[in-house]
Write a protein that binds this DNA or RNA. Structure first.
Length: 443
RNA sequence: GCGCCUCUAGCUCAAUUGGCAGAGCAACGGACUCUUAAUCCGCAGGUUCUGGGUUCAAGUCCCAGGGGGCGCACCA
């Protein structure tokens, strides 16, 4: 609450998360009037009284009785300018939420986005499941995991980098439409687009392929936008995008050529693509094949230039170890990536169901790992055995919820859509040190 | 991990070429019967992120460290 005492009268603004209302107090009719006028910005009170209209016409509660629910000892920032120091905002998010209305709106919107995604999947017959976060092997994505120790089992476990392999095992078990909406953990650097824990939606549908799943993603994204904003148009960082389906399809080769002017057909071979990469100033990991080089060129030069929405298709097999080979085009897989305003918002696959092909892909990953790629996958025998039981043709999607919220909220930093983003421990006041510890001399 | 930028009162921000650390809001004391960021008077508020150094003199310059932002790298 914020008070504006005026002698024998007082006005105040009382706010909760539904909005605010003006309080109006008259000394002769309000209990403990003097005390009421001395409340601080940020004190929490409850009150009762008649609803009246002031002379200026504002609907107000004329306070009769009131209770101090909780005094505030710290204050909540400048009442007009709020709180803008980003460090304070992230470390003390409660202050940020209290002081800055736009921040409250962002997180209420995030909640509605998550609810809308669930509702839409449920309506299509998907079943929400929960699979292990603590995993003996971290699979399903190329990423370094967090390691933790499982005391009772005397072994190290990993926080999942993706739920993918477990969800596919559920498809094998007859759960034809499953999804999980939860936290993944990747032991990587922080950036405006990356937080080590982030929220992923993965969904799998048996008897479906990547075209079916592309339709699902279009519906989830455009439908949610329409539901929340009454429009499929969004503006992200000054770029206007219409999310109404169907989204354009274009191959990786096509979009790279559109943006760079370079012809990049995989069929031209490794050396030709390496030459293109050189011309464009794109560095390529040593030993890369044609597919890897094309992918590197795309990521460095093209992806951020695509306004979209566009579904980029025909990814090289060497950068997609869990995806089924394309039904007619050699060297590529049935994978699509929707790009909106220069950013990838999901992954769409026809899943690889053949246990033998999957095994050889994972063995190749493990070999890369041995060679020093510590983000390559490992051979997960439990997963492979499940495929040997027979997995029907299945389509899958992975949708980054944080990034979808960023798109909808027009916010460029993931921290702005995470209530408590990862921050380094604040040790500023401990600086100087030397006082405690190893010096055995004391008074 | 590397590079650039940044850190001043509870909050938002000033402080000339190195020359007495300031304002608004909040808080605190007072005035005020229709305010809307109320207004007016008064009062108080500081390890200028930390530790060193240069200098007659450091918020300002130099070195080291810490936090944050952005970029690179890694990735979604």
């Amino acid at each position: 609450m914020l008070s504006r005492p005026q002698g024998r009268l007082a006005f105040a603004e009382l706010r909760d998360w539904t909005g605010s209302v003006q309080l109006f107090a008259v000394a002769s009719r309000t209990e403990r009037f003097e005390e009421l006028t001395r409340l601080s910005l940020g004190d929490w009170i409850g009150c009762t009284g008649e609803v009246v209209r002031t002379k200026r016409g504002e609907l107000s509660v004329q306070v009769e009785s009131w209770t101090l629910l909780a005094p505030t000892r710290h204050g909540f920032g400048d009442k007009w300018r709020g709180v803008h120091d980003v460090e304070l905002r992230y470390r003390q998010r409660e202050v940020d939420l209290w002081a800055n209305e736009g921040v409250r709106d962002t997180f209420l919107m995030r909640s509605r986005v998550v609810a809308a995604l669930r509702r839409r999947l449920d309506a299509r017959g998907f079943v929400e499941v929960e699979t292990p976060v603590l995993q003996p092997l971290a699979g399903g994505a190329n990423a370094r995991p967090f390691v933790t120790h499982f005391n009772a089992l005397h072994s190290d476990f990993y926080l999942r980098v993706a739920p993918e392999l477990y969800l596919k095992r559920l498809v094998v078990g007859g759960f034809e439409r499953v999804y999980e909406l939860g936290r993944d953990f990747r032991n990587e650097g922080l950036s405006p687009r990356h937080n080590p824990e982030f929220t992923m939606l993965e969904a799998y549908q048996a008897y479906a392929d990547y075209e079916d799943m592309a339709g699902l993603v279009e519906e989830l994204v455009a439908g949610t936008a329409l539901e929340l904003f009454g429009s499929t148009e969004v503006v992200f960082q000054g770029r206007r995008v219409d999310l109404a389906p169907p989204w354009r399809r274009a191959t990786l080769e096509q979009v790279v050529e559109e943006v760079t002017g370079e012809r990049c057909e995989l069929g031209r071979g490794r050396d030709a693509l390496a030459a293109v990469a050189g011309r464009l100033g794109v560095e390529v990991p040593p030993g890369s094949g044609a597919g890897r080089i094309l992918y590197e060129i795309y990521e460095r030069t093209t992806e951020h230039e695509l306004l979209g929405p566009v579904l980029v298709t025909d990814y090289p097999v060497d950068v997609s170890p869990l995806v089924r080979a394309h039904r007619s085009k050699p060297g590529v897989v049935e994978r699509m990536t929707p790009i909106v305003a220069g950013r990838e918002i999901a992954e769409i696959y026809s899943e690889l169901c053949d246990p033998d092909v999957q095994r050889s892909r994972l063995v190749a990953q493990a070999a890369a790992r041995e060679a020093g790629d510590d983000e390559a996958m490992v051979v997960d025998e439990d997963f492979l055995r499940s495929l040997e039981h027979g997995m029907p043709p299945t389509g899958g999607i992975g949708l980054g919820v944080d990034r979808l919220v960023m798109l909808f909220a027009d916010l460029p930093a993931i921290r702005e859509v995470l209530l408590f983003p990862a921050l380094r421990q604040d040790r500023r006041d401990g600086a100087g040190g030397g006082g405690e510890g190893a010096d055995g001399t004391d008074a």
